[in-house]
Amino acid sequence: MADETYPQELKYFAEHDWVKVDGEEAVFGITWFAQDSLGEIVYADLPSAGESVSAGTTYGELESVKAVSEIYAPLSGEIVDVNGRLEDEPQLVNDDCYGDGWLIRIRMSAPDEIDSLMDADAYKAFLDHE
């Protein structure tokens, strides 16, 4: 597991998800803090491409050695891709949470929702304040 880090180029959601905006699309994953809190991820239950997600609602679950936990969508849109590697290698979420451990990619339906997300400094302050 890498050291605690929150890349500046990403946006963050209060449920401990990160967002990488890529044109009209956005990639979701969970933050270093989230994967560290959950412990070793042993199963990722993710939706399929073509399904829709809504900001602030759950779209899947992660099972770790500590808990089965819901995952929340930071933005709304249609899922265009799902990280299929997690089916056989769920621990990628721990090993590389901002890279190979990404969860889903969506085509945004309400891009202005990005404005409600935190930048890295705000997220770090959120973690320390809570």
Partner: peptide, 14 residues
Amino acid sequence: GEDHRGGVDTALPY
């Protein structure tokens, strides 16, 4: 209590 970092502490209930 509410003072857990990030509002999350998976270890505490355990």
